[in-house]
Design a binder for these strands. Structure first.
Lengths: 196, 196
DNA sequence: GTTGCAGTATACAGATCTGTCTAGTATGAT
DNA sequence: ATCATACTAGACAGATCTGTATACTGCAAC
Protein backbone atom coordinates (compact mmCIF):
# COMPACT_ATOMS: atom_id res chain seq x y z
CA UNK A 1 0.00 0.00 0.00
CA UNK A 2 1.45 3.30 -1.03
CA UNK A 3 -0.01 5.94 1.21
CA UNK A 4 1.56 8.88 -0.57
CA UNK A 5 0.26 7.79 -3.96
CA UNK A 6 -3.16 6.55 -2.95
CA UNK A 7 -3.93 8.79 0.05
CA UNK A 8 -7.59 7.99 0.02
CA UNK A 9 -7.62 7.92 3.81
CA UNK A 10 -5.84 10.06 6.36
CA UNK A 11 -4.08 7.93 8.94
CA UNK A 12 -4.99 8.11 12.61
CA UNK A 13 -1.50 9.44 13.27
CA UNK A 14 -1.95 12.40 10.96
CA UNK A 15 -5.40 13.18 12.26
CA UNK A 16 -4.06 13.11 15.81
CA UNK A 17 -1.23 15.45 14.91
CA UNK A 18 -3.63 17.83 13.24
CA UNK A 19 -5.95 17.83 16.23
CA UNK A 20 -3.07 18.25 18.66
CA UNK A 21 -1.74 21.09 16.53
CA UNK A 22 -4.97 23.00 16.87
CA UNK A 23 -5.93 22.24 20.44
CA UNK A 24 -2.53 22.25 22.14
CA UNK A 25 -1.51 25.45 20.42
CA UNK A 26 -4.73 27.35 20.96
CA UNK A 27 -5.67 26.25 24.45
CA UNK A 28 -2.47 25.00 26.00
CA UNK A 29 -0.93 21.61 26.48
CA UNK A 30 -2.02 21.01 30.03
CA UNK A 31 -5.57 22.28 29.74
CA UNK A 32 -6.39 20.06 26.77
CA UNK A 33 -6.97 16.47 27.79
CA UNK A 34 -6.46 13.34 25.78
CA UNK A 35 -10.20 12.86 25.41
CA UNK A 36 -10.63 16.19 23.66
CA UNK A 37 -7.76 15.42 21.29
CA UNK A 38 -9.14 12.05 20.21
CA UNK A 39 -12.64 13.45 19.93
CA UNK A 40 -11.41 16.31 17.74
CA UNK A 41 -9.36 13.88 15.67
CA UNK A 42 -12.22 11.41 15.35
CA UNK A 43 -9.98 8.60 16.52
CA UNK A 44 -10.11 5.92 19.21
CA UNK A 45 -8.10 6.33 22.36
CA UNK A 46 -6.28 3.07 21.73
CA UNK A 47 -5.04 4.46 18.42
CA UNK A 48 -3.37 7.32 20.23
CA UNK A 49 -1.60 5.07 22.67
CA UNK A 50 -0.66 2.55 20.01
CA UNK A 51 0.82 5.30 17.86
CA UNK A 52 2.49 7.58 20.39
CA UNK A 53 2.58 5.65 23.63
CA UNK A 54 1.96 8.62 25.89
CA UNK A 55 0.69 12.18 25.92
CA UNK A 56 4.25 13.43 26.32
CA UNK A 57 5.26 11.74 23.10
CA UNK A 58 2.25 13.24 21.34
CA UNK A 59 3.38 16.65 22.54
CA UNK A 60 6.87 15.96 21.27
CA UNK A 61 5.52 14.91 17.90
CA UNK A 62 3.25 17.95 17.77
CA UNK A 63 6.15 20.31 18.38
CA UNK A 64 8.33 18.45 15.93
CA UNK A 65 5.65 18.95 13.28
CA UNK A 66 5.49 22.64 14.12
CA UNK A 67 9.25 22.93 13.74
CA UNK A 68 9.20 21.22 10.37
CA UNK A 69 6.37 23.44 9.19
CA UNK A 70 8.26 26.56 10.21
CA UNK A 71 11.44 25.37 8.54
CA UNK A 72 9.56 24.68 5.35
CA UNK A 73 7.86 28.07 5.39
CA UNK A 74 11.16 29.84 5.84
CA UNK A 75 13.09 27.69 3.39
CA UNK A 76 10.44 28.28 0.76
CA UNK A 77 10.85 31.99 1.28
CA UNK A 78 14.64 31.82 1.15
CA UNK A 79 14.42 30.04 -2.19
CA UNK A 80 12.67 33.03 -3.70
CA UNK A 81 15.79 35.14 -3.78
CA UNK A 82 19.53 34.89 -4.22
CA UNK A 83 20.35 38.09 -2.41
CA UNK A 84 21.33 37.37 1.21
CA UNK A 85 19.95 40.68 2.41
CA UNK A 86 16.57 40.01 0.82
CA UNK A 87 16.66 36.50 2.21
CA UNK A 88 17.33 37.72 5.71
CA UNK A 89 14.55 40.26 5.61
CA UNK A 90 12.37 37.59 4.03
CA UNK A 91 12.57 35.62 7.27
CA UNK A 92 10.98 38.57 9.02
CA UNK A 93 8.42 38.83 6.26
CA UNK A 94 7.41 35.24 6.93
CA UNK A 95 7.15 36.05 10.61
CA UNK A 96 5.06 39.12 9.87
CA UNK A 97 2.69 37.17 7.66
CA UNK A 98 2.39 34.39 10.21
CA UNK A 99 1.96 36.75 13.15
CA UNK A 100 -0.73 38.72 11.34
CA UNK A 101 -3.05 35.77 11.08
CA UNK A 102 -5.79 36.00 13.70
CA UNK A 103 -5.20 32.49 14.99
CA UNK A 104 -1.54 33.18 15.71
CA UNK A 105 -0.83 33.03 19.42
CA UNK A 106 2.94 33.30 19.55
CA UNK A 107 5.75 30.84 19.25
CA UNK A 108 4.58 27.28 19.92
CA UNK A 109 7.87 26.47 21.63
CA UNK A 110 7.77 29.41 23.99
CA UNK A 111 4.21 28.52 24.87
CA UNK A 112 5.05 24.88 25.40
CA UNK A 113 8.16 25.66 27.43
CA UNK A 114 6.05 27.68 29.85
CA UNK A 115 3.99 24.60 30.60
CA UNK A 116 6.73 22.02 30.90
CA UNK A 117 7.69 20.50 34.16
CA UNK A 118 11.47 20.79 34.49
CA UNK A 119 13.30 17.82 33.04
CA UNK A 120 10.79 17.02 30.34
CA UNK A 121 12.07 15.44 27.15
CA UNK A 122 10.01 17.94 25.21
CA UNK A 123 12.61 20.60 25.88
CA UNK A 124 14.93 18.88 23.40
CA UNK A 125 12.64 19.92 20.55
CA UNK A 126 12.56 23.48 21.86
CA UNK A 127 16.34 23.57 21.91
CA UNK A 128 16.44 22.13 18.42
CA UNK A 129 14.15 24.87 17.21
CA UNK A 130 16.23 27.61 18.77
CA UNK A 131 19.48 26.16 17.48
CA UNK A 132 18.07 26.02 13.97
CA UNK A 133 16.89 29.62 14.05
CA UNK A 134 20.15 30.87 15.44
CA UNK A 135 22.18 28.90 12.89
CA UNK A 136 20.02 30.30 10.13
CA UNK A 137 20.58 33.88 11.23
CA UNK A 138 24.28 33.26 11.71
CA UNK A 139 24.60 31.86 8.19
CA UNK A 140 22.71 34.76 6.69
CA UNK A 141 24.66 37.26 8.76
CA UNK A 142 27.85 35.87 7.31
CA UNK A 143 26.43 35.99 3.80
CA UNK A 144 25.45 39.62 4.06
CA UNK A 145 29.04 40.35 5.05
CA UNK A 146 28.43 41.47 8.59
CA UNK A 147 31.51 42.57 10.46
CA UNK A 148 30.59 40.35 13.37
CA UNK A 149 28.05 37.80 12.20
CA UNK A 150 27.56 36.18 15.62
CA UNK A 151 26.68 39.47 17.22
CA UNK A 152 24.29 40.28 14.41
CA UNK A 153 22.73 36.83 14.70
CA UNK A 154 22.16 37.37 18.42
CA UNK A 155 20.48 40.65 17.68
CA UNK A 156 18.26 39.16 15.00
CA UNK A 157 17.18 36.30 17.25
CA UNK A 158 16.29 38.90 19.85
CA UNK A 159 14.06 40.72 17.38
CA UNK A 160 12.53 37.48 16.20
CA UNK A 161 11.67 36.46 19.76
CA UNK A 162 10.36 39.88 20.62
CA UNK A 163 8.03 39.84 17.65
CA UNK A 164 6.66 36.47 18.71
CA UNK A 165 5.98 37.71 22.23
CA UNK A 166 4.20 40.77 20.93
CA UNK A 167 1.97 38.60 18.79
CA UNK A 168 1.21 36.38 21.77
CA UNK A 169 0.55 39.09 24.32
CA UNK A 170 -0.84 41.95 22.26
CA UNK A 171 -2.55 39.83 19.65
CA UNK A 172 -1.18 41.82 16.75
CA UNK A 173 1.50 41.54 14.12
CA UNK A 174 2.77 45.01 15.00
CA UNK A 175 5.84 43.66 16.73
CA UNK A 176 6.79 41.75 13.61
CA UNK A 177 6.61 44.95 11.56
CA UNK A 178 8.83 46.73 14.06
CA UNK A 179 11.21 43.78 14.07
CA UNK A 180 11.52 43.76 10.30
CA UNK A 181 12.21 47.49 10.14
CA UNK A 182 14.75 47.25 12.91
CA UNK A 183 16.41 44.27 11.26
CA UNK A 184 16.85 46.32 8.11
CA UNK A 185 18.47 49.06 10.16
CA UNK A 186 20.80 46.57 11.82
CA UNK A 187 21.77 45.17 8.45
CA UNK A 188 22.78 48.61 7.30
CA UNK A 189 24.91 49.09 10.35
CA UNK A 190 26.43 45.61 10.26
CA UNK A 191 27.27 45.98 6.60
CA UNK A 192 29.09 49.16 7.42
CA UNK A 193 26.87 51.52 5.50
CA UNK A 194 26.26 53.64 8.55
CA UNK A 195 29.43 53.24 10.52
CA UNK A 196 30.78 56.21 12.32
CA UNK B 1 -3.44 45.59 65.35
CA UNK B 2 -0.81 47.23 63.21
CA UNK B 3 0.65 44.59 60.97
CA UNK B 4 3.32 46.78 59.44
CA UNK B 5 4.64 47.91 62.79
CA UNK B 6 4.36 44.69 64.76
CA UNK B 7 4.76 42.08 62.00
CA UNK B 8 5.41 39.27 64.40
CA UNK B 9 3.42 36.90 62.22
CA UNK B 10 3.14 36.59 58.48
CA UNK B 11 -0.48 36.45 57.39
CA UNK B 12 -1.87 33.44 55.56
CA UNK B 13 -2.46 35.69 52.59
CA UNK B 14 1.18 36.67 52.33
CA UNK B 15 2.40 33.13 52.80
CA UNK B 16 0.04 31.96 50.07
CA UNK B 17 1.28 34.65 47.72
CA UNK B 18 4.87 33.72 48.44
CA UNK B 19 4.20 30.04 47.84
CA UNK B 20 2.24 30.77 44.67
CA UNK B 21 5.05 33.03 43.51
CA UNK B 22 7.55 30.22 43.74
CA UNK B 23 5.50 27.27 42.57
CA UNK B 24 3.39 28.88 39.84
CA UNK B 25 6.39 30.62 38.36
CA UNK B 26 8.77 27.70 38.46
CA UNK B 27 6.49 24.84 37.53
CA UNK B 28 3.57 26.42 35.78
CA UNK B 29 0.12 27.47 36.83
CA UNK B 30 -1.75 24.42 35.63
CA UNK B 31 0.68 21.78 36.81
CA UNK B 32 0.73 23.07 40.37
CA UNK B 33 -2.38 22.11 42.30
CA UNK B 34 -3.97 23.86 45.21
CA UNK B 35 -2.79 21.19 47.60
CA UNK B 36 0.85 21.83 46.79
CA UNK B 37 0.40 25.56 47.23
CA UNK B 38 -1.15 25.30 50.67
CA UNK B 39 1.35 22.68 51.74
CA UNK B 40 4.25 24.89 50.65
CA UNK B 41 2.66 27.87 52.34
CA UNK B 42 1.93 25.94 55.53
CA UNK B 43 -1.66 27.06 55.44
CA UNK B 44 -5.05 25.40 55.59
CA UNK B 45 -7.08 25.00 52.45
CA UNK B 46 -9.96 26.92 53.96
CA UNK B 47 -7.66 29.91 54.39
CA UNK B 48 -6.97 29.96 50.70
CA UNK B 49 -10.63 29.91 49.76
CA UNK B 50 -11.57 32.40 52.44
CA UNK B 51 -8.90 34.80 51.25
CA UNK B 52 -9.01 34.43 47.48
CA UNK B 53 -12.21 32.52 46.72
CA UNK B 54 -10.77 30.55 43.83
CA UNK B 55 -7.56 29.42 42.23
CA UNK B 56 -8.09 31.89 39.42
CA UNK B 57 -8.15 34.74 41.91
CA UNK B 58 -4.98 33.44 43.51
CA UNK B 59 -3.35 33.46 40.09
CA UNK B 60 -4.52 37.01 39.53
CA UNK B 61 -3.14 38.09 42.87
CA UNK B 62 0.13 36.28 42.21
CA UNK B 63 0.60 38.08 38.92
CA UNK B 64 -0.41 41.38 40.43
CA UNK B 65 2.29 40.92 43.06
CA UNK B 66 4.82 40.14 40.36
CA UNK B 67 3.87 43.29 38.51
CA UNK B 68 4.24 45.42 41.61
CA UNK B 69 7.61 43.86 42.37
CA UNK B 70 8.86 44.59 38.86
CA UNK B 71 7.60 48.14 39.01
CA UNK B 72 9.34 48.69 42.32
CA UNK B 73 12.62 47.21 41.05
CA UNK B 74 12.57 49.44 38.01
CA UNK B 75 11.42 52.56 39.85
CA UNK B 76 14.17 52.08 42.40
CA UNK B 77 16.67 51.97 39.59
CA UNK B 78 15.22 55.00 37.86
CA UNK B 79 15.58 56.97 41.07
CA UNK B 80 19.33 56.44 41.00
CA UNK B 81 19.90 58.84 38.16
CA UNK B 82 18.55 62.06 36.70
CA UNK B 83 19.86 61.46 33.21
CA UNK B 84 17.11 59.99 31.00
CA UNK B 85 19.61 58.05 28.92
CA UNK B 86 21.10 56.40 31.99
CA UNK B 87 17.62 55.75 33.30
CA UNK B 88 16.56 54.05 30.09
CA UNK B 89 19.62 51.85 29.99
CA UNK B 90 19.11 51.23 33.69
CA UNK B 91 15.85 49.45 32.86
CA UNK B 92 17.86 47.00 30.80
CA UNK B 93 20.38 46.69 33.59
CA UNK B 94 17.61 45.62 35.91
CA UNK B 95 16.47 43.11 33.33
CA UNK B 96 20.01 41.82 32.92
CA UNK B 97 20.45 41.41 36.65
CA UNK B 98 17.11 39.67 37.00
CA UNK B 99 17.64 37.44 33.98
CA UNK B 100 21.07 36.38 35.19
CA UNK B 101 19.70 34.82 38.34
CA UNK B 102 19.58 31.04 37.99
CA UNK B 103 15.96 30.82 39.11
CA UNK B 104 14.82 33.23 36.41
CA UNK B 105 12.57 31.50 33.92
CA UNK B 106 11.35 34.35 31.76
CA UNK B 107 8.55 36.84 32.05
CA UNK B 108 5.85 35.63 34.45
CA UNK B 109 3.15 37.18 32.27
CA UNK B 110 4.30 35.53 29.08
CA UNK B 111 4.45 32.22 30.90
CA UNK B 112 1.03 32.69 32.43
CA UNK B 113 -0.50 33.83 29.17
CA UNK B 114 0.61 30.60 27.51
CA UNK B 115 -1.42 28.64 30.04
CA UNK B 116 -4.58 30.70 30.07
CA UNK B 117 -7.77 29.48 28.60
CA UNK B 118 -9.09 32.22 26.30
CA UNK B 119 -11.36 34.67 28.09
CA UNK B 120 -9.71 34.40 31.47
CA UNK B 121 -9.79 37.44 33.72
CA UNK B 122 -6.09 36.95 34.35
CA UNK B 123 -5.30 38.47 30.99
CA UNK B 124 -6.25 41.88 32.37
CA UNK B 125 -3.16 41.83 34.59
CA UNK B 126 -1.01 40.82 31.62
CA UNK B 127 -2.33 43.74 29.63
CA UNK B 128 -1.74 46.04 32.57
CA UNK B 129 1.86 44.90 32.75
CA UNK B 130 2.46 45.46 29.06
CA UNK B 131 0.79 48.87 29.11
CA UNK B 132 2.96 49.94 32.02
CA UNK B 133 6.18 48.84 30.32
CA UNK B 134 5.27 50.49 27.07
CA UNK B 135 4.27 53.73 28.81
CA UNK B 136 7.56 53.70 30.69
CA UNK B 137 9.61 53.32 27.52
CA UNK B 138 7.52 55.95 25.75
CA UNK B 139 8.08 58.45 28.56
CA UNK B 140 11.80 57.77 28.64
CA UNK B 141 12.02 57.93 24.86
CA UNK B 142 10.51 61.38 24.98
CA UNK B 143 12.86 62.46 27.72
CA UNK B 144 15.95 61.40 25.83
CA UNK B 145 14.74 63.56 22.98
CA UNK B 146 14.04 60.83 20.46
CA UNK B 147 12.85 62.05 17.10
CA UNK B 148 9.97 59.61 17.18
CA UNK B 149 9.47 58.44 20.74
CA UNK B 150 6.66 56.00 19.93
CA UNK B 151 8.76 54.19 17.37
CA UNK B 152 11.68 54.01 19.77
CA UNK B 153 9.40 52.74 22.53
CA UNK B 154 8.13 49.98 20.25
CA UNK B 155 11.68 48.99 19.51
CA UNK B 156 12.67 48.96 23.15
CA UNK B 157 9.68 46.84 24.11
CA UNK B 158 10.74 44.43 21.40
CA UNK B 159 14.22 44.14 22.88
CA UNK B 160 12.83 43.79 26.36
CA UNK B 161 10.54 40.95 25.30
CA UNK B 162 13.26 39.27 23.32
CA UNK B 163 15.58 39.28 26.30
CA UNK B 164 12.90 37.67 28.43
CA UNK B 165 12.33 34.91 25.89
CA UNK B 166 16.03 34.21 25.67
CA UNK B 167 16.21 33.86 29.44
CA UNK B 168 13.25 31.49 29.41
CA UNK B 169 14.33 29.30 26.52
CA UNK B 170 18.11 29.38 26.69
CA UNK B 171 18.40 29.74 30.43
CA UNK B 172 20.90 32.55 30.26
CA UNK B 173 21.04 36.29 30.65
CA UNK B 174 22.87 36.62 27.36
CA UNK B 175 19.82 37.98 25.60
CA UNK B 176 19.56 40.73 28.19
CA UNK B 177 23.15 41.74 27.54
CA UNK B 178 22.49 41.88 23.81
CA UNK B 179 19.31 43.84 24.43
CA UNK B 180 21.10 46.43 26.54
CA UNK B 181 23.85 46.92 23.99
CA UNK B 182 21.34 47.19 21.19
CA UNK B 183 19.24 49.64 23.19
CA UNK B 184 22.28 51.85 23.60
CA UNK B 185 22.82 51.75 19.86
CA UNK B 186 19.19 52.64 19.21
CA UNK B 187 19.42 55.53 21.62
CA UNK B 188 22.35 56.93 19.69
CA UNK B 189 20.41 56.69 16.47
CA UNK B 190 17.19 58.07 17.91
CA UNK B 191 19.02 60.99 19.46
CA UNK B 192 20.45 61.79 16.07
CA UNK B 193 24.08 61.18 16.94
CA UNK B 194 24.46 58.75 14.11
CA UNK B 195 22.03 60.04 11.56
CA UNK B 196 22.98 59.87 7.95
C1' DG C 1 -9.15 -18.74 3.98
C1' DT C 2 -6.35 -17.52 7.23
C1' DT C 3 -3.31 -14.43 9.31
C1' DG C 4 -1.83 -9.94 10.63
C1' DC C 5 -2.45 -4.99 10.80
C1' DA C 6 -4.75 -0.80 11.84
C1' DG C 7 -8.33 0.97 13.75
C1' DT C 8 -13.00 1.52 16.68
C1' DA C 9 -15.75 1.63 20.85
C1' DT C 10 -16.03 1.59 25.55
C1' DA C 11 -15.50 0.34 30.28
C1' DC C 12 -12.45 0.82 33.91
C1' DA C 13 -8.56 1.74 37.34
C1' DG C 14 -6.19 4.88 39.95
C1' DA C 15 -4.70 9.25 40.62
C1' DT C 16 -5.43 14.12 41.02
C1' DC C 17 -7.98 18.29 40.65
C1' DT C 18 -10.97 22.25 42.53
C1' DG C 19 -13.96 23.50 45.79
C1' DT C 20 -17.11 22.72 50.05
C1' DC C 21 -18.06 21.57 54.57
C1' DT C 22 -17.66 20.64 59.48
C1' DA C 23 -15.36 21.16 63.68
C1' DG C 24 -12.11 23.12 66.51
C1' DT C 25 -8.31 26.66 68.28
C1' DA C 26 -5.95 30.99 69.47
C1' DT C 27 -6.26 35.89 70.16
C1' DG C 28 -7.49 40.46 70.76
C1' DA C 29 -11.29 43.95 71.45
C1' DT C 30 -15.13 45.37 73.88
C1' DA D 1 -16.81 36.98 79.95
C1' DT D 2 -18.20 37.17 75.44
C1' DC D 3 -17.80 37.65 70.66
C1' DA D 4 -15.71 38.28 66.16
C1' DT D 5 -11.76 37.29 63.52
C1' DA D 6 -8.36 34.56 61.53
C1' DC D 7 -6.77 30.44 61.16
C1' DT D 8 -5.98 25.00 61.26
C1' DA D 9 -7.07 20.11 60.18
C1' DG D 10 -9.07 17.03 57.41
C1' DA D 11 -12.94 14.51 55.29
C1' DC D 12 -15.57 14.64 51.30
C1' DA D 13 -17.99 15.38 46.66
C1' DG D 14 -17.76 15.46 41.96
C1' DA D 15 -15.29 16.11 38.06
C1' DT D 16 -11.43 15.12 35.15
C1' DC D 17 -7.05 13.25 34.07
C1' DT D 18 -3.80 9.59 31.95
C1' DG D 19 -3.33 5.17 30.75
C1' DT D 20 -4.89 0.04 30.29
C1' DA D 21 -7.73 -3.72 29.03
C1' DT D 22 -11.27 -6.12 26.34
C1' DA D 23 -13.82 -7.18 22.46
C1' DC D 24 -14.88 -6.17 17.89
C1' DT D 25 -14.41 -4.68 12.56
C1' DG D 26 -12.54 -3.98 7.90
C1' DC D 27 -9.01 -4.90 4.76
C1' DA D 28 -4.97 -6.39 2.35
C1' DA D 29 -1.43 -9.87 1.51
C1' DC D 30 -0.01 -14.34 0.91
Amino acid sequence: MNKAAVSEKVSARDRLLAAAGELFYEEGINTVGIDRVIEHAGVAKASLYNTFGSKDELIRAYLHTQLQARQERINARLAKSDDPRAQLLGVFDVMRETASRPEFRGCAFVRASAELKPGSAVKVVCDESRAWTRALFTRLAKEVGAHNPHVLADQLVLLYDGAAVSAQMDGSGKGAVTARALAAQLLDIAQGLRNL
